[in-house]
């Protein structure tokens, strides 16, 4: 009986720098309404097949642990996998350019017309809607991420520290973060698996 040849795990297909740039530019221009990660997965894993799902999840877990937005962190990590630093650079640029042009134009328009009563009224509506949208996003994610009383306690402490006690974000991040990390220190009772920690993945 002949043994099957050892097939190496599928590696990322070769992609040209231009191809990477154009792909990320399209994602950067079309991913409206948040959830860039879903667009990234559809383009990189499903359409281009540059990465498989396990590569994608691995990059996602790096992205989540670091500061920076998932949209740009994922562009850099995927671009680097595909083509090294030049891939990372053009992926990040492609992802950012459309939004940059949009928001710079928005800034100019706001400066020119922002005090128009009709525009001001519309922006008040936009702001109220944005609060509802952001609250809903975090309600969904928060529900998934509260795995035990300790997690709920950490969330409550972080909110109170900032909203009631006016502590600055870095102090809360370092202080409460240290408590959280110590609670989950290596060797502490393992009650969760890392897979459940993927809740942030739907954020940008």
């Amino acid at each position: 009986m002949s043994t099957a040849p050892v097939v190496p795990a599928p590696t990322s297909k070769k992609a040209s720098v231009l191809d990477i740039f154009v792909t990320f530019l399209i994602i950067g221009a079309t991913s409206f309404g948040g959830g860039v990660v879903a667009y990234l997965r559809s383009a990189l894993v499903t359409k281009k097949q540059w990465l498989d799902d396990s590569n994608f999840l691995e990059l996602m877990s790096i992205s989540n642990t670091l500061p920076g937005l998932n949209a740009t962190n994922m562009s850099i990590l995927a671009g680097n996998r595909l083509r090294g630093w030049s891939g990372a650079l053009v992926a990040m640029l492609g992802m950012c350019l459309p939004g940059f042009a949009f928001m710079t134009a928005a800034g100019v328009l706001y400066g020119a017309r922002g005090d128009n009563p009709l525009i001001t009224a519309a922006l008040k509506g936009v702001a109220a809607a944005a609060v509802g949208l952001i609250a809903a996003t975090w309600y969904q994610l928060g529900r998934k991420s509260v795995r035990d009383a300790f997690d709920a306690f950490v969330i409550l402490i972080a909110v109170l520290a900032i909203v009631e006690f006016k502590l600055s974000v870095p102090i809360v991040l370092l202080g409460v973060g240290a408590i959280g990390i110590f609670h989950h220190r290596p060797g502490a009772a393992k009650t969760h698996t890392i897979g459940e920690g993927k809740w942030i993945s739907s954020l940008q």
Binding site: I155, I162, G180, R185, P186, G187, I194
Partner: peptide, 25 residues
């Protein structure tokens, strides 16, 4: 080993910070 600790430990803090940000907004 600390990588998992950091990931699990920061997840609820991130939710808390985002909720505080939403309240501020």
């Amino acid at each position: 080993p600390w990588r998992t600790s950091i990931q699990l430990g920061l997840a609820p803090v991130a939710v808390g910070l985002a909720v505080a940000g939403t309240i501020s907004l």
